[in-house]
């Protein structure tokens, strides 16, 4: 069901070496931001991080959602899903409203706050490399295959079989397969995901549906509103007119009926 490429991250295999972190920096020409890479956080110069939780390490990066909030909310369509399933950003369209940052359920997009012509930054699944037929820089650099790159179908298969073959070793859930409609980055781990800092309690439905439910009503609001207002205008106007005419009528008829009686009094 899922075409395109993606990443499977296996917490049990990650040794916290930071090779992916370094590779991503090099691939994207990003300056160093922190001497201790394990303490770094996502920023405009850091598109992926490795975090330490006890003796476990967890990678964070854009989840390349199937129905991404960022794509749905951007007023100018800066974000787009490409042929690999990666969610990529076009800096030439962006107006900098930062709704994408507000809306992303994984709080991924970052902003170049320091610049006067800032961009939104996030992992783009190394789309340039993918076009050349290579794997992502982070997956290539990973010495243990904790970060595995491949076709989505394959990755899901691998993840499933790992969960099945080692039921005691793995927490029985593939994070990112269904969360917020699922995406192209999957995570499996020995413990519940919220303990590793992944956003928990996300609904399985894609987030944009929440907005769509309201947006759908717009045409009917416009139509119903238009009809209602026009009718009301017409009705109330008519009412006022009739009231006025009735008064006039009353006056006229009274005048006629009474004839010239009063002249006799003069």
């Amino acid at each position: 069901m899922l075409n395109g490429k993606g990443i499977l991250f296996d917490v049990t295999l990650c040794i916290g070496c930071g090779a992916c972190y370094q590779a991503c920096k090099e691939e994207n020409d990003l300056p160093n931001t922190n001497k201790e890479y394990l303490k770094d956080h996502l920023s405009e110069n850091t598109l992926t991080i490795v975090e330490q939780y006890g003796d476990k390490y967890a990678r964070k990066l854009c989840m390349h959602c199937n129905e991404p909030s960022c794509v749905s909310v951007c007023p100018v369509g800066s974000f787009k899903k490409n042929e690999f399933g990666a969610v990529i950003y076009d800096k030439n369209k962006c107006i900098g409203c930062r709704y994408c940052m507000q809306a992303c359920p994984h709080k991924v997009p970052r902003y170049e706050w320091g610049k006067t012509q800032p961009r939104v930054r996030k992992c783009n699944l190394c789309s340039k490399r993918l076009k050349e037929g290579k794997l992502t820089a982070c997956a290539e650099a990973c010495p243990t295959e904790a970060t595995l790159f491949g076709d989505m179908e394959k990755l899901i298969e691998v993840a499933n079989s790992r969960l099945k073959n080692n039921p005691t070793k793995y927490y029985q859930h593939i994070y990112g397969l269904e969360e917020a409609g699922g995406g192209h980055v999957l995570v499996i781990s020995p413990m519940p995901f919220e303990q590793l800092g992944y956003t928990a309690m996300l609904p399985d439905k894609p987030m944009p549906e929440l907005t769509m439910r309201a947006m759908e009503k717009i045409p009917s609001v416009v139509a119903a509103g238009g009809i209602f207002l026009t009718t009301m205008y017409w009705l109330t106007k008519r009412k006022n007119q009739i009231a006025r005419e009735e008064k006039k009528q009353l006056f006229k008829s009274e005048n006629r009926n009474n004839g010239n009686k009063y002249h006799e009094e003069l």
């Binding site: 008064k247 006039k248 009353l250 006056f251 009274e254 005048n255 009474n258 009063y262």
Partner: peptide, 8 residues
């Protein structure tokens, strides 16, 4: 009638 007329 005068009153009605004035109103009018």
């Amino acid at each position: 009638k005068a009153a009605v007329w004035i109103k009018e």
